[in-house]
Design a protein around this nucleic acid. Structure first.
Lengths: 239, 239
DNA sequence: CGAGGCATTGAAACCCTTCAATGAGTGTGG
DNA sequence: CCACACTCATTGAAGGGTTTCAATGCCTCG
């Protein structure tokens, strides 16, 4: 699915995200191990298919086993906001744990498989599961706050860099290449997530390529200079 | 503390926030009732005092009993982001529930009192408490996503309106006036939260006053036309 | 081989930021 | 009690980064 799978436990944590990632995301495979042998309902998804939609009765939690997903919220007047891109080990449906219906859309950006977690069953049999859940929830909050920080204090180019570094680190933690990746989302989705227009994303990627930091070929991104990419985000030297 | 306290259970939910507020915030007093008679450690705070700082060992969760607080995260290179303004019924420390240390600062913007919750004790004696916790966590995620949506799709004036409507609704739910409120934070804090410069906040408030929607007198805000204020946020009529 | 979705590029317009100066309110100390 | 210091709020003007609008190109799919 991604370029050159490496050893599953390579865990190169980017300084940009390390502080934000909780135990839940630091080792995305742990939940899967925990669930081995359980009667999980598995579901395969095609591109553009919904895992669930806002307003639907909540069935449960979904653990991503493979694929690439986006979650988004839509306001009453139709404004849309991509709240995150999710991959293996991430949980879908966390934000509605206390509600009877989902409050966001979860959409597959690629073929993939998700596992439906029998929540009530798990609460009884696996006391450890509740901790995982709490950790996942708290981790999502920290991640959201970090992105708020990014969007609130960085310019377009730096936001795109933040995104690339974050995705690179996450893919790396999953055993994929950290320097070569295929963006599964459109420029519009990416722009929406980063609070930028799609044209601005295009231009930012273009400038990063012109600086020799990355190589862009439609959705294929190759990172050429990770250290200088990281340096892009640091505040201009203090006086 | 605020203008004209009304009946404690008035719960006027603003459409802007209603969809986002979970059970936990919909009735902020419920947790307090749940905790009646428990051996809580109470702590009084002065203006500018820290409830906790990022990096400190995590003592526990704090329930706000009174006062006005802000939470913020700070990146390694010093960029700051106010992640929310918190008042009675809100929990401080949620985002670090799975960690040994706090990851944000919580600061009192006014005198106030917080109750330290004995987490382990609660988990054993009050099974209902775990549900509250989950609801509070999920609610925070939904709130964060909603603010991301606001910051990503609204202009300066609309963001300020969103903030005013949100605060108005929250104060109202606590039994305070929904049309007259005292902003406890500086323009800089507000700007930081809304991803705007403080001058932009000032000008937005000024324009709203010029339109006769609100009345601004330093930190005292009076809402004159709530319906038109709400209408400011809706997208320009579709064709 | 069109049709459609998506990406790219250019130019103009605009909203917000930045910089700078002034004013108002609060607290401290002589 | 007033003066000074300090914080915070306000206002103006200029500059710039991003958006908006429009057109073109590329790739995929039926």
């Amino acid at each position: 699915m991604y370029d050159r799978p490496i050893t599953p436990d390579t865990n190169v944590c980017d300084p940009c995200t390390a502080a934000v990632q909780g135990a839940a995301t630091a080792s995305p495979m742990m939940l899967e191990r925990l669930l081995e042998g359980l009667p999980l309902v598995r579901r395969r998804l095609r591109r553009r298919q919904y895992v669930f939609r806002a307003g639907q009765p909540r069935h449960g939690l979904y653990l991503i086993h493979s694929g690439f997903y986006k979650t988004r919220v839509i306001s009453e007047d139709g404004r849309e906001k991509v709240t995150g891109f999710r991959l293996r080990g991430d949980l879908l449906g966390l934000e509605a744990l206390d509600l009877p219906t989902y409050t966001c859309d979860a959409i597959a950006l690629d073929v993939g498989e998700i596992w439906e977690l029998p929540q009530s069953y798990l609460r009884e049999r696996l006391p450890e599961f509740q901790e995982r859940l709490t950790a996942a929830l708290a981790g999502e909050i920290r991640r959201d706050w970090n992105w708020m920080l990014v969007l609130g204090s960085l310019n377009a180019e730096q936001r795109v860099v933040s995104f690339l570094l974050d995705l690179s680190a996450r893919l790396s933690a999953l055993g994929f290449s950290s320097t070569s990746m295929l963006l599964r989302m459109t420029r519009a989705d990416l722009g929406n997530f980063l609070a930028l227009q799609l044209e601005t994303v295009v231009r930012a990627l273009h400038r990063l390529q012109a600086q020799g930091l990355i190589e862009v070929e439609r959705r294929q991104i190759r990172i050429h200079d990770l250290p200088r990419l990281r340096a892009q985000i640091a505040l201009p030297a203090m006086h």
